[in-house]
């Protein structure tokens, strides 16, 4: 059983994509914890600790995805969850994809990525079959 934390860091309130993803992952058999809007990196890390999730998913459409992702990954590391995969979605220009994976993001799914591709990524996780 894969447990997923979905969060929106920062001040951007566009949550259509993350809400649709939440229902799609639920329908793919995941337990999805959605934190709601306006999360700080610290809040996301603390939620990930308490919920002991297998994956942390971030969605950002404000352009601040590089800085915010870096902070979330750093906070997760400090909270002892450095090995948990972080995935990033939203309005991510191609030039930033390598930047994000360089910071430690396990996968980047820019706007326009098919949900099939995202579900495929989850299906390949070791927790997917346990």
């Amino acid at each position: 059983m894969t447990r997923v934390l979905l969060a929106k860091p920062g001040l951007d309130g566009h949550d259509k994509g993350i809400k649709v993803l939440a229902t799609i992952l639920r329908d793919a058999g995941c337990e999805v914890i959605y934190t709601g809007l306006h999360q700080t990196p610290q809040k996301i890390a603390l939620a990930a600790v308490q919920e002991d999730v297998d994956v942390i998913g971030l969605s950002m459409l404000s352009g601040a995805h590089v800085d915010l992702s870096r902070d979330v990954i750093e906070q997760l590391r400090e909270a002892g969850l450095g090995e948990r995969p972080v995935i990033v979605g939203g309005n991510i220009p191609l030039r930033d994809v390598a930047l994000l994976t360089g910071l430690g993001a396990a996968a980047v799914f820019p706007t326009g990525t098919s949900y099939e591709e995202i579900i495929g990524w989850f299906a390949a996780l070791p927790t997917a079959t346990s």
């Binding site: 920062g10 001040l11 601040a64």
Partner: peptide, 22 residues
């Protein structure tokens, strides 16, 4: 910008990275 939309001053920690961006 988003901090102004959320009623935050530019030096508020919650405004981090979003000042003047959108």
């Amino acid at each position: 910008d988003l901090p102004t939309q959320m009623g935050l001053d530019s030096d508020d920690p919650r405004a981090n990275y979003e000042v003047g961006r959108l």
